[in-house]
Design a binder for these strands. Structure first.
Length: 465
RNA sequence: GCUCCCAUCGUCUAACGGUUAGGACACGGCCCUCUCAAGGCCGCGAUACGGGUUCGAUUCCCGUUGGGAGCACCA
């Protein structure tokens, strides 16, 4: 039975990189009919907050990553870690270290300055510490790492990784204040939660050999590892705030569909032939960790937006209405007439690449007053334009039926009457009068949807400009 | 500095050692057209570099360069 986990630390919102890691864990679990576990790594009490925990959970829910177990909090498992530390001490696989952070820092700097790798030299490792254990001098616990040979493991994405144990020093597993450190808690947690596959960002690749030593010291089975390539900003640097939106919840407010985010994120580092657009179901069906690439990828908001527009196209009018509604409300629009709003959204659906954009361009239908773009009004609501509008107004007023065909015929008649040869010259003033801008769906479609009453009312207002 | 990892169009990616190196986003052009989209067609554009191995390297090996990560009493 396959068991995977996503283990964010609540020191920030769920960001793009974390979401992608969560996605690959999720897809892997669902594909294999395994278990997906959520674990909050909050041993850093200084930086972890409830606010971030809530935000991460919200992000997970929005993206549709239902977890099967958890969320577990490491902070609630402190006893478990201490038991494991005790075990290692009893077996002489860990020891007390009385070095102060200041001493360590100085040594580290000295080593670095000498061009050497700054690792702990083992000052307390072989010292006879017994006389000091009884006094109250502060100490932390270090892992007594094996020093000979190589740590070798097979990474599902990377292949064989080998590191000489000399590169690894005796890491601290329990801080002076009695709290465990990350490299120790992950191991204890992954083991006790029976994690079979550790799927995480490749910034953890260097930690893996240390963790493997811990598994071995604890005499626990070692899980499979898969290290995912990072997601970078357009400047090829690690994605950060200065690249704009990095937290997934911002993508929600920008009007992205969660399924589109899944789709785009999945295609960063993974592919399935030439296919670009995937439903969540397809992702689950096709996903394969072995196909995941090794090189980091740049997050491209342009392509993400295109993927979103493709998903938008697949929505039914009813679904689209449901998704768009909150964005309309954000613009202060309450939908009174559902059928009318549905027609309005339908007419714009090919034009909006995000839900937010769709709401913005649909707004003119739903707002009482037309908000004029001044440049557009100047250009088209001039003398000539108004002449056409007046002629239209008269004809339209007496129209008995109201559909695109009849409206088109009316336009033709007026163009003939006024000697207008190009449709633009009548269509644009009309468009500006009805929508306030020079851009909209087909003019007859707009008029048909707005209905006679609104059209005439808006003409009236435009003629007064 | 040391260790580990990575390297195909601007970007995301495809290519059992044998392809005119394919697709997608973006970009440019044309068609469609009442505006804007959508759609259709066409175009631009890549194997980082240098050595090997091989009849033949994008593909395998080595080196160089470039990038990333780690070397915390952060996760």
């Amino acid at each position: 039975m396959i068991r995977v986990r996503f283990a964010p630390s609540p020191t920030g919102h769920l960001h793009i990189g974390g979401a992608r890691t969560a996605l690959f864990n999720y897809l892997f679990a669902r594909h294999a009919k395994g278990t997906f576990i959520l674990r909050i790594e909050d041993t850093d009490r200084e930086r972890s907050t409830q606010e971030y925990t809530d935000s991460i959970l919200k992000g997970m829910e929005w993206l549709g990553f239902e977890w099967d177990e958890g969320p577990f909090h490491q902070f609630e498992r402190l006893e478990l870690y201490k038991e494991h530390v005790e075990k290692l001490i009893k077996e002489d696989k860990a020891y007390r270290c009385y070095c102060t952070p200041e001493e360590l820092d100085a040594k580290r700097k000295a080593l670095l300055a000498a061009g050497k790798k700054p690792k702990y030299e083992g000052t307390c490792r072989n010292k006879d510490l017994e006389p000091r254990t009884s006094n109250s001098e502060p100490y932390c616990i270090r892992f007594k790492a094996p020093q000979k040979g190589n740590v070798v493991f097979q990474d599902i994405c990377r292949g064989e990784i080998s590191v000489n144990r000399e590169e690894l020093d005796d890491m601290i597993i329990l801080r002076t204040d009695g709290t465990p450190t990350y490299n120790f808690t992950v191991v204890v947690d992954d083991v006790t939660m029976n994690i079979t596959h550790v799927i995480r960002g490749d910034d953890h690749l260097n930690n893996t050999p240390r963790q493997i030593q811990l598994y071995q010291a604890l005499e626990y089975p070692i899980p499979q590892f898969a290290h995912l390539p990072m997601i970078l900003g357009p400047d090829k640097q690690k994605l950060s705030k200065r690249h704009g939106a990095v937290s997934v919840i911002e993508y929600k407010s920008m009007g992205f569909l969660p399924e589109a985010m899944l789709n785009y994120l999945a295609r960063l580092g993974w592919s399935h032939g030439d296919q670009e657009i995937f439903t969540k179901k397809e992702l689950i069906e096709y996903f394969d960790l072995k196909v995941v690439g090794k090189a980091p990828s740049v997050f491209d908001i342009e392509k993400c937006t295109w993927v979103n527009s493709e998903h938008l196209k697949k929505l039914s009018d009813k679904e689209l209405m449901k998704w768009t509604k909150p964005y309309l409300e954000e613009l202060g629009i309450q939908i009174a007439d559902e059928a009318y709003a549905a027609k309005a959204i339908h007419s714009e659906r090919e034009r909006g690449k995000t839900l937010k954009e769709l709401a913005q361009i649909t707004a003119f239908y739903l707002k009482e007053e037309v908000l004029f773009d001044e440049a557009a009004a100047q250009k088209w609501l001039n003398e000539n334009g108004k002449k056409g509008l007046k002629a239209l107004q008269n004809k339209l007023f007496s129209l008995k039926s109201w559909d695109e065909k009849i409206l088109h015929d009316t336009f033709d008649a007026i163009m003939k009457e006024l000697g207008i040869s190009k449709m633009v010259e009548l269509a644009q003033p009309c468009r500006v009068a009805l929508t306030g801008t020079t851009v909209s769906p087909g003019i007859f479609e707009v008029m048909a949807i707005l209905g006679k009453e609104r059209v005439l009312k808006r003409f009236e207002a435009a003629l007064k400009k």
